[in-house]
Nucleic acid binder design. Sequence first.
DNA 1: ACGCTTAACATAGCAACGTTATGTATTCTG
DNA 2: CAGAATACATAACGTTGCTATGTTAAGCGT
Lengths: 211, 211
Amino acid sequence: MARSKDPAVRALLLERAAHMLRTRQPVTLRSLVDGTGVSTMAVYTYFGGMDGLWTALRQEGFRRLAARLDTVDATADSVRDLTALGAAYMSNALADPDIYRVMFDAGFDLEDAAAADATLHRLVDAVERAKGDGRFRPDVDAVELATRSWVIGHGLASLVAGGPLPDAALAHGVPLLAALFASAGDDPVRSRRSVEAGWVVEVPESGVLVG
Amino acid sequence: MARSKDPAVRALLLERAAHMLRTRQPVTLRSLVDGTGVSTMAVYTYFGGMDGLWTALRQEGFRRLAARLDTVDATADSVRDLTALGAAYMSNALADPDIYRVMFDAGFDLEDAAAADATLHRLVDAVERAKGDGRFRPDVDAVELATRSWVIGHGLASLVAGGPLPDAALAHGVPLLAALFASAGDDPVRSRRSVEAGWVVEVPESGVLVG
DNA sequence: ACGCTTAACATAGCAACGTTATGTATTCTG
DNA sequence: CAGAATACATAACGTTGCTATGTTAAGCGT
């Protein structure tokens, strides 16, 4: 056959692209490879072009999101845990606003949909656990409730991360989720307490915002 | 002085850019002016460059949004009206997904913030009218409740318009808004009825989706 | 063990992009 | 009615993503 691709080069380019995105430098084919020792062709052998790089970057974003969601561990309060997943989602979006924007930008293909589905599934699991605990009505559809939580989380993340709303608007997450969970059958007072306990969002360069 | 700018040319370029965006043609400087008889310089005299064109396009988007929100007229049911504003917001986003995306994309400057604020203000007014009708608790902050409605609307619009969720997901708007309004003091059953009455979203090429 | 095949990579060039410099025409002003 | 300033066309410049071409090196069959 021939030479085999070096996975380290791929990782290097991906890392560098993410870093350039974070530091607000325009990510162009030439600026990406400048100083790395590799030529522009590397982007084509590893990603098939710039479009492929963006796709890979989206998947890297979902990978990081998944990693952050994994740091949320289950407690006795399943509604708190569900909220904590939402807070972790938010922390991830704020940690890298540009990557988050790229994740949901124009070229949302089937691969990305699968990745998005995987992260949504974690929410579904959390909802089902809460149902098992009797927090939600038995007739509540776990996928639907998870999707609605996602709508709230994405709306908030999208408007705060580089959007028109300030960081302080993250506080809206608590009443929004509490209202949603109460509508699914959870006791309003108890729900509020659980959500306040779980809503801990890390805001870069401004510490931690607690609900 | 000298020749005066022709407002018709500005409107023509803006209209054409919006049309190219809707028909998924890439909007480039040259493709924009091709066939219009004007030269590439027109974009610079009228908008100061492509960035200026995007800013103008964002404002055009907010203008259209405002126009659509104006078609919602007040009825005796103020919560229905508030929901109808949300539905109109959604219809606008789905009618021109690409313009909607541009509106909330990267270059969100102060002008855009003002435009966004103006549209948010209509929601605030509607919330205050509902408070006057005794539908919401007196201690409810109108701006906050309006912002939370916006978070739901934007999250849904963003995930449906070109995003991972299908058009059918628009139906989530009803339970989400109903839950939010109920948490603000509105009677749950009555709220549900009002929201179902107001949630009428126009989906292009697939008719009208009623809650 | 050796040569052929094939993939990885560098170099160079292409069309198209946004922008700017330059020149011309037009229209308001003094 | 002349002067000046602005609208606009034309053309060029640097940079973009991409591709064609050439070279090098790794893996397999004999």
